[in-house]
Amino acid sequence: MPTVSCRYRGELRCEATHHGSGAVLITDAPIDNAGKGEEFSPTDLLATSVATCMLTIMGITAKSRNWSIEGSTADVEKQMTQSGPRKVEKLRVQLKLPQQLSNEQRSLLQRVAEQCPVKRSLDPSIHLELIWS
């Protein structure tokens, strides 16, 4: 059985259904690529996947040690190529962890975030800049 089923709805919009949960998300082509920009674009989802994967991996590590990282954030800036084939050129991720964490805790969380499966799956041509605060 598939993990996700996607359907083209027309007008450069797609609907994706997650089989495990029934959750539905809609994508839309971005304004700078003939779309309406009313929903996440597929490349926005790529950027979102990197950030949420890092937060999730850190959450798993923190939970296993009875630490709280609730309130941690990741803001992502996505840059597309300006020439040649259209693709994601750079992702700049600014991650903020709670202030109560020790330096040792922060160091471990940063190391595990670097190993998230989405980051490992990115094409090496995508420049990924991580900024920790």
Rank of each mutant, 00 (worst) to 15 (best):
1 M>T: 15
1 M>A: 12
3 T>Q: 15
5 S>D: 12
5 S>A: 13
6 C>S: 14
6 C>E: 14
7 R>W: 15
8 Y>E: 10
9 R>N: 08
10 G>V: 05
11 E>H: 14
11 E>N: 00
12 L>V: 02
13 R>S: 03
15 E>Q: 11
16 A>L: 11
16 A>K: 04
17 T>H: 06
18 H>Y: 14
19 H>S: 10
21 S>I: 02
21 S>A: 05
21 S>F: 00
22 G>F: 03
24 V>F: 08
26 I>M: 12
26 I>C: 06
27 T>P: 04
31 I>N: 00
31 I>G: 07
32 D>E: 13
33 N>A: 13
35 G>K: 01
35 G>C: 00
35 G>A: 07
38 E>I: 07
39 E>Y: 14
41 S>R: 00
43 T>C: 04
43 T>S: 13
44 D>Y: 04
44 D>M: 05
44 D>K: 06
45 L>H: 04
46 L>P: 00
47 A>W: 04
48 T>I: 09
49 S>A: 09
50 V>R: 01
54 M>P: 00
54 M>A: 08
56 T>I: 08
57 I>A: 03
59 G>P: 05
66 N>Q: 09
68 S>L: 08
68 S>G: 07
69 I>V: 15
71 G>V: 01
71 G>P: 07
73 T>Q: 12
73 T>H: 01
74 A>D: 12
74 A>G: 14
75 D>H: 14
76 V>W: 09
77 E>L: 13
78 K>I: 09
78 K>E: 09
79 Q>V: 07
79 Q>I: 03
80 M>T: 08
80 M>Q: 15
83 S>L: 01
84 G>P: 02
85 P>K: 01
85 P>Q: 12
85 P>T: 10
88 V>F: 05
89 E>N: 11
90 K>E: 06
92 R>T: 15
93 V>H: 06
94 Q>S: 14
95 L>Y: 08
95 L>N: 01
96 K>P: 01
98 P>V: 02
103 N>A: 11
104 E>V: 11
106 R>H: 02
107 S>H: 09
108 L>R: 08
110 Q>G: 09
110 Q>F: 02
112 V>E: 00
113 A>Q: 03
114 E>G: 07
115 Q>F: 12
116 C>W: 06
118 V>P: 01
121 S>L: 03
121 S>P: 11
122 L>F: 06
122 L>G: 06
123 D>E: 15
123 D>Q: 13
124 P>C: 05
126 I>Y: 09
128 L>K: 03
128 L>M: 02
